[in-house]
Each structure stands twice: as structure tokens, then as C-alpha cells.
Simulated scan of single mutants.
Amino acid sequence: MDLSEHYNQLYKKSAAAILAGNYKLDSQINNPSDSRFGITLLIRPSEKIKAYIQLFLNELKAIEPTQYYYPDADIHITLMSIISCYEGFTLDKISIEDYIKVIQESLINLGKIKIEFRGVTASPSALMIQGFPADESLNNLRNKLRENFKKSTLQQSIDSRYAISTAHSTVMRFQEKLQNPEKLIAVAEKFRDYNFGEFTVDKVELVYNDWYQRENNTIHLHDFDI
């Protein structure tokens, strides 16, 4: 299944569930004792694209003001979840330099990564911006990271939840009962094929993060120029 079809199927299934009241609330967003942390390699979209995303979010906020919306500083694409968030993980359990070295090796001879943000999709618990890589550069980098980390002895959980293959960005999560599910889906439909813009990735970031990539819980570990 190609990426466009994957997003389409996800949207159709999730929109139907939302309208039927079968959506899922995230009970952990406001839990101050949530201790799920991990390390992630991520991509940040351009400021221009984030401005267009906020236009979309502002329309959603007008009808669903009590949901969880990602601020600009938290919007990202997960390039690779190297250690998936789990309870009690702390940085003193690993050597950051060893991880940096493996990532640097994976970036050798990498082509330019271009990503187009076009349209929105949904899950039963969130709304996402659809990302479309221009070519295979992103997949090639992910495969190199998989190969190099599996050859190493470093703690990692790559692909343990699922094999990442998309380039989406989650921008809204359901944290309370929806007040206007029909209007929510109407806004999603309005932006279903909206062109948020294209950007060329000039760096990727290694971070220690919570489940939601909140800036105030994130420790920046390293930037890799590409």
C-alpha cells in the first residue's frame, strides 16, 4: 500500500469511528506523574509550514477548545524512535556519545530529504498532518539506522511497536469528550488536501523526550546537519 492510500484508509476508518462516538481519549496528557521517556531522532518542519498548521489548529480550537493542541515548538516528524518511551527510562542508563556515533555513520552518503505536508488524516485519538517524502532518501536513512543499531550492542527498541514508514506529524489529541464531532470532521474535510508546504530537511535532532514531545520535558542531545 502506498503512503497516500495508507493515509486515506486511516482517515476513512478513523473519521467513521469519531462520528460514531468510538474515539479514544488520552488519559495521560495531564498526568504529572507520567514517567514515560525515551530517545528520538526527529525532524522539525519549517516555520512557514508551522504557521499554516496553526491556521488549521485555530479552526479546530474554535469548535473544540478543550482538546490538546501541539504548540509550534513541539511539532515534529518522528524519523526514528530509537528507545520508545517507557516508564522510568533516564539518560544515565545509556552513553549518548555511542548513539551519536551510530547516527553519524548512518548519515554518510545520504541524499537530500524533501517532505511535502499535504492534507490531514486521523486516528481514533488524534489528528495528523500528512507528510510525503519526495523520494526514498528518508526510507534509506531509516533502513541504515535499523541496520547500524541492530549491529551495535546499544539499548534500542527500533520497530518494537511498529515499523515506522510514514512522515506524518500529530498536531491534536483528544483529551476530553468531543463537543462537536461533526464540525471537527467538517474542518478535517476542509483541510483534507490542503497544501501546507514543502521543505528540505537541513538537520535532524536527537532528543530525550516524553510521550508527547513537549518542549519543557525535552532534553536536546545533538543536532546532525544533513
Rank of each mutant, 00 (worst) to 15 (best):
residue 1 M to H: 11
residue 4 S to A: 14
residue 5 E to T: 15
residue 5 E to K: 15
residue 5 E to V: 13
residue 8 N to L: 14
residue 9 Q to Y: 03
residue 13 K to H: 11
residue 15 A to L: 06
residue 18 I to W: 06
residue 23 Y to M: 02
residue 24 K to Q: 13
residue 24 K to N: 09
residue 24 K to R: 12
residue 27 S to G: 10
residue 28 Q to P: 01
residue 30 N to G: 10
residue 33 S to Y: 13
residue 35 S to P: 10
residue 37 F to H: 05
residue 37 F to Y: 15
residue 37 F to N: 05
residue 39 I to P: 07
residue 40 T to M: 09
residue 42 L to S: 04
residue 45 P to Q: 00
residue 45 P to Y: 03
residue 46 S to V: 11
residue 47 E to T: 13
residue 48 K to G: 14
residue 48 K to V: 11
residue 53 I to Q: 10
residue 58 N to Q: 10
residue 58 N to V: 09
residue 64 E to L: 03
residue 65 P to D: 13
residue 74 D to W: 01
residue 78 T to M: 01
residue 84 S to G: 12
residue 84 S to Q: 13
residue 88 G to Q: 02
residue 88 G to N: 01
residue 88 G to R: 00
residue 88 G to V: 01
residue 89 F to I: 05
residue 93 K to P: 02
residue 93 K to H: 10
residue 94 I to R: 02
residue 96 I to T: 12
residue 99 Y to T: 02
residue 101 K to G: 03
residue 102 V to P: 01
residue 103 I to Y: 05
residue 108 I to H: 08
residue 108 I to A: 08
residue 108 I to Q: 08
residue 115 I to L: 04
residue 117 F to Q: 06
residue 118 R to P: 04
residue 118 R to M: 09
residue 121 T to D: 09
residue 124 P to Q: 12
residue 126 A to D: 02
residue 129 I to M: 06
residue 131 G to K: 00
residue 132 F to A: 04
residue 132 F to Y: 15
residue 132 F to P: 01
residue 132 F to D: 03
residue 134 A to Y: 07
residue 135 D to I: 11
residue 135 D to F: 08
residue 137 S to R: 03
residue 139 N to E: 13
residue 140 N to M: 03
residue 141 L to E: 05
residue 143 N to P: 01
residue 146 R to P: 12
residue 150 K to C: 08
residue 151 K to H: 05
residue 157 S to Y: 04
residue 161 R to I: 15
residue 161 R to M: 07
residue 162 Y to S: 12
residue 166 T to P: 04
residue 168 H to P: 04
residue 172 M to S: 03
residue 172 M to T: 06
residue 173 R to H: 05
residue 173 R to F: 05
residue 173 R to S: 03
residue 174 F to I: 15
residue 176 E to K: 14
residue 178 L to R: 02
residue 181 P to V: 00
residue 183 K to F: 09
residue 183 K to S: 14
residue 186 A to S: 12
residue 188 A to N: 12
residue 188 A to S: 11
residue 189 E to I: 09
residue 189 E to V: 08
residue 191 F to N: 01
residue 192 R to V: 11
residue 201 V to R: 04
residue 205 E to I: 13
residue 206 L to Y: 08
residue 207 V to I: 15
residue 210 D to K: 00
residue 214 R to L: 08
residue 216 N to W: 08
residue 219 I to G: 00
residue 220 H to G: 06
residue 222 H to W: 08
residue 222 H to C: 11
residue 222 H to V: 07
residue 223 D to M: 04
residue 225 D to M: 12
residue 226 I to L: 15
